[in-house]
Design a protein around this nucleic acid. Structure first.
Length: 128
DNA sequence: ATTCTGACA
DNA sequence: TGTCAGAA
């Protein structure tokens, strides 16, 4: 069992973050009076929450995923739900990727026109 | 000293 | 999510 400060340090977040996710209903640490106590379960859930965040899932999606984890011991329904979300996420990222590539092409095109107008001017826009 | 809740120049 | 205040 860890105090909020210890749990935060272990997870690489701040106490504020732990309280934030608690407010959102993603975790429910035990209490010793009013002070929070983080068990191994909360730590595990937090790690899943942080990973979900890194992968771009919303608080709500992460919460739904976590809720299934409790109700479904075998995690079958949970895995299906997760896979569905993963696919949505992949589709969304591909969509964004396409949009980025299109604007990038457009910008590069304009950049080329601008450069042509300046006829081999020594000033060349930066590339990556 | 540490944590809690509520609020936001 | 940070941060500050006022209380416990």
């Amino acid at each position: 069992m860890l105090g909020i400060q210890e749990a935060a340090t272990l997870l690489g977040v701040t106490m504020r973050t732990l309280r934030f996710y608690e407010d959102k209903g993603l975790i429910a640490p035990q209490r010793a009076g009013t002070t929070r106590i983080y068990s191994k379960r909360e730590i595990g859930r937090m790690q899943l929450i942080l990973r979900g965040k890194r992968l771009g899932f919303s608080i709500r999606e992460i919460k739904e995923f976590l809720d299934l984890y409790d109700v479904d011991p075998e995690h079958l329904e949970q895995v299906r739900a997760l896979r569905a979300r993963i696919r949505e996420r992949i589709a969304d990222l591909r969509k964004q990727k396409l949009a980025i590539e299109q604007t990038l092409d457009e910008l590069l095109s304009i950049e080329r026109q601008a450069s042509a107008r300046l006829e081999g001017s020594p000033v060349r826009p930066v590339h990556d």
